[in-house]
């Protein structure tokens, strides 16, 4: 069965400590529970979570939706935002985990990725290099989210055209964002490999960056 891989890249730098990370976790749990009641998502979705602060790490490798449990996420006191390193890891995981289509065999559906940060990349050189490298990999869609007032939109636009921003980092905004992601993932799981589909209309708390 062809899988729909979903990669979630989460900023876990120091500024996410406390309420923001709790709100993100609540949002992720809601995302999991809503996708678990969606017959399209249940059939195909596999999820992976990559976190990044001082270093990027695979918190959960690509795992079937059914049986996916969200581990503890504990951002360090202070740390840089190594988004470049996260992209490097994403590219490595993509190469390792996603089954490619060859003339002999159908591979997985094109992956879907979500990048969420509340700041700007600290490893600017690597970030630049990796955004170029990322372009060589096919995704059904990458959605980037600039969360809160300090998040920089411009670097995210290097990654994807689908950038959204959240004015505040309160639990309501995060809840709305993850619910919207869940709708987008569900939609993706219904449209085979089509990359043309519009994103679902975002709720008021989420601003599409045009």
């Amino acid at each position: 069965m062809r899988r729909l891989p979903i990669y979630i890249l989460l900023d876990t730098s120091g500024s996410m400590r406390g309420e923001p990370i709790e709100a993100v976790k609540t949002g992720l749990r809601a995302l999991l529970s809503s996708l678990s009641r969606d017959p399209y998502a249940l059939e195909t979705v596999y999820l992976s979570i990559i976190t990044f602060d001082r270093e990027a790490k695979v918190l959960v490798p690509l795992t079937e939706l059914d049986g996916f449990t969200l581990p503890e996420i504990e951002p360090p006191e202070t740390s840089p935002t190594n988004l470049g390193e996260a992209l490097e890891l994403l590219i490595r995981q993509y190469g390792k985990e996603v089954v490619k289509t060859t003339p002999e065999q159908k591979g997985d559906w094109l992956p879907f990725a979500v990048v969420m940060t509340d700041g700007a990349p600290s490893d600017t050189m690597l970030f630049k290099q990796m955004t170029a490298e990322l372009k060589k990999h096919r995704f059904a869609r990458i959605v980037a989210c600039a969360a809160g007032p300090k998040a920089k939109v411009d670097p995210l636009r290097e990654i994807t055209k689908d950038v959204v921003s959240l004015d505040t980092m309160d639990s309501n905004s995060f809840a709305q964002f993850w619910q919207w992601v869940s709708t987008a993932v569900s939609q993706q799981s219904q449209t085979a490999d089509s990359t043309q589909e519009d994103l679902p209309p975002p709720p008021n708390e989420i601003n599409l960056v045009l």
Binding site: D193, S194, T195
Partner: peptide, 13 residues
């Protein structure tokens, strides 16, 4: 089924 017509996803579909 298993048949691959094209490696480009949209064309395959």
């Amino acid at each position: 089924g298993r048949k691959v017509h094209d490696q480009e996803p949209d064309i395959q579909e």
